[in-house]
Nucleic acid binder design. Structure first.
Length: 594
RNA sequence: GCGCCAAUAGCUCAGCUGGAUAGAGCAACGGUUUUCUAAACCGUCGGUCUCAGGUUCGAAUCCUGAUUGGCGUACCA
């Protein structure tokens, strides 16, 4: 692959410093950035670091280097130095050639396979309640990061570790047994996960009531929480589950089945999928052989009560329990075992856990332990920690019913999309099924973009009273730009096969658009390295915005010159393709009309 | 107490490994359509980048300390 203009500029700037000032300029001293709009040129070399070697003013140095570069690089047409910034103008021939040889290419922005395998574990729901807005963020992040890494050349495995057992599941089961009267999704008309969630909430109500009663009779809060009859019953149910009690297992299977049906619907609407499911009911006993291994290696130690610990105080952390005195697992025991299992199954080079930032400490400890155990794959583990989605009233809590339900929110988004679109009269004459599909694309696009445009680690505020926007820096804005381009292409009779003719001279908005489009691969790369879909989201917005500017400034179909018309159609088509490609990395569909 | 994370316009957010006068959107106000989709475009208004020091030719960005907020520090998951 030919070297980029940035690489050439770096090289020749070094040469210039060597020839003119007789000094070696280290690579990290060379900064090349895009020229700010208010100045002439497209690329800028920052000359301050060079003045150390030139012993001249920034302006004089810039002029020296600029003159040298102008002689060496035929792509350059002019330069100017302002306050220590050497602004370079590249010829229109350079930009059009960049466009036809690279940007226009079908696979522009997709990297060749790099031979590395990577797992993204995300979603990982509990099967005792429906998904809420926080889960949507998790799912979209996981799906998008997986797509971005695949585009960057990884072989990606999407995994979902389902938390399908434990005391929280037994709570729903017990409440259903007690108050359900045999209610099923079929008899109630409720989506399975919502039905099960209803009983989880009922359990909690009863539990709270019992706690209050006990406290009224003089128990301490801690004691009341342990002694409440209903929680004891749930614990007994968990023991029966672990003992393989047929009745409990049957109920567990039935109710989990309802939940899975519900989740499948929600996942389908979200457009996320998985290559591999792990179930905690299969993995919760794993990890004990690793405990043994750690004891033998002297990484772990046993306390008199028979519990097993690791001392991480030397690493600035605490002592951490890894196995209970009675020999049963804790959370981290399972996670050690599951990490080993996943590696044994796939042998991946890297493994990303998409989990909320409340578990930062847990993963820090987990990764450190695996490293101390000498697992060669431990250094490939990464916790993609994201911020919680908060409501104005604070954190969402399923037990207390203060959540924004995933299904409700999606319904609302699609309904709003329908309303907005019909107000604008955009879909008159369209058959109903097509309308419905379009509203789904727009509503989901608004929601997904809203969640993905924000840097993952930042927490997100969602105000249910303020609807998610459809104008400005939003998904629908980008979708609209795509639809608008498709409309122009259709009217212009454009086909991809048409040979491209390039004009001699570009307008500023054409040049800016080409330059922006040419940044697509670098954006994908940055997003992949930082595991941040936000880069791609914001890039898509920039492209749409720049295209709209171009669209308003120039006429396409009625361009005076046939070559210009042809070129602008190709430029539009390429813009649409890159928008569609970038949005696909976010799991956002783009319509051909809206 | 200790640890991790965040703090940028009234609100929601960008700002890449330090680089020019800190940028978008929303909200408010004004303008643009007999011409390719006005979910658009252009303009006005809006900032002591939480504070105080430090490093540097240069700091929203790096370092130290404080303040505020979130999370964690469970033999819960």
């Amino acid at each position: 692959m030919a070297s980029t203009i940035q690489q050439q500029l770096t090289y020749h700037t070094k040469q210039a410093v060597k020839e003119i000032y007789g000094a070696d300029l280290p690579d990290n001293q060379i900064t090349i950035q895009e020229t700010r709009k208010e100045f002439d040129g497209q690329l800028t070399v920052v000359v301050f670091p060079i003045t150390r070697f030139s012993r001249k003013s920034p302006e004089a140095t810039g002029n020296d280097i600029g003159a040298y570069l102008l002689r060496q690089l035929p792509e350059l047409t002019a330069f100017n130095t302002i306050k220590g910034f050497l602004n370079l103008s590249l010829s229109d021939a350079y930009w059009t050639s960049l466009f036809t040889t690279a940007v226009m290419h079908e696979k522009f922005g997709r990297f060749p396979a790099n031979g590395h395998k990577l797992m993204v574990e995300y979603s990982s729901p509990n099967t005792n309640k429906p998904l809420h807005l926080g889960h949507i963020r998790n799912n979209l992040l996981g799906y998008s990061v997986a797509s971005i890494l695949a585009a960057y050349g990884y072989e990606v495995i999407k995994a979902n570790l389902v938390n399908d057992r434990g005391i929280h599941i037994c709570k729903s089961m017990l409440a259903w047994q007690r108050w359900g009267n045999g209610e099923t999704p079929g008899t109630s008309g409720m989506k399975g996960d919502h039905l099960v969630g209803k009983y989880y909430v009922l359990f909690d109500k009863e539990y709270k009531k019992e706690i209050d009663e006990l406290r009224a009779h003089g128990h301490t809060e801690d004691d009341a929480k342990k002694q409440a009859p209903i929680i004891r019953e749930a614990q007994q149910m968990l023991q029966r589950w672990e003992a393989g009690d047929e009745e409990v297992i049957a109920l567990w299977k039935t109710m989990n089945g309802w939940v899975y049906d519900g989740f499948a619907q929600t996942y389908g609407r979200l457009g996320v999928d998985f290559d591999k499911y792990y179930y905690e009911s299969d993995t919760y006993l794993l990890g004990k052989d690793i405990i043994q291994e750690g004891l033998e290696k002297g990484v772990f130690f046993r306390k008199p009560d028979n519990s097993v610990w690791i001392d991480l105080t030397a690493d600035g952390l605490d002592e951490k329990l890894v196995l209970r005195g009675d020999g049963t697992s804790v959370y981290i025991t399972q996670d050690m075992g599951t990490a080993q299992l996943k590696y044994d199954d796939f042998g991946m080079d890297e493994s990303i856990y998409v989990v909320g930032n409340e578990q930062d400490y847990h993963f820090k400890v987990l990764f450190l332990i695996l490293e101390k155990l000498g697992k060669p794959w431990a250094k490939g583990l990464f916790h993609l920690s994201y911020g919680m989605v908060d409501l104005p009233s604070g954190k969402m809590k399923s037990r207390e019913g203060t959540v924004v339900d995933a299904d409700d929110l999606m319904d609302e988004m699609v309904t709003t999309a329908r309303k907005r679109t019909e107000e604008l009269g955009k879909t008159e004459g369209l058959p109903e099924p097509e309308k419905a599909a379009l509203y789904d694309i727009i509503g989901m696009g608004a929601l997904k973009y809203f969640l993905l445009k924000v840097e993952p680690k930042k927490r997100l505020l969602f105000d249910p009273n303020e609807s998610i926007d459809f104008q400005g820096h939003t998904g629908p804005f980008i979708q609209y730009t795509h639809a608008r381009i498709q409309s122009v292409l259709t009217k212009g009779g454009y086909t991809q096969q048409q040979a491209i003719v390039v004009p001699e001279v570009l307008t500023e908005s054409e040049r800016d658009l080409i330059q922006l489009l040419s940044n697509y691969p670098a954006t994908v790369e940055a997003a992949a390295k930082e595991f941040s879909p936000a880069y791609v989201a914001n890039y898509g917005y920039e492209v749409a915005k720049q295209y709209n500017k171009f669209y308003h400034e120039e006429t396409i179909l009625k361009a005076s010159d046939e070559a210009v018309r042809n070129f602008r159609l190709h430029l539009s088509a390429t813009t649409a393709r890159i928008i569609a490609s970038a949005m696909a990395l976010l799991g956002i569909a783009v319509p051909d009309r809206m």
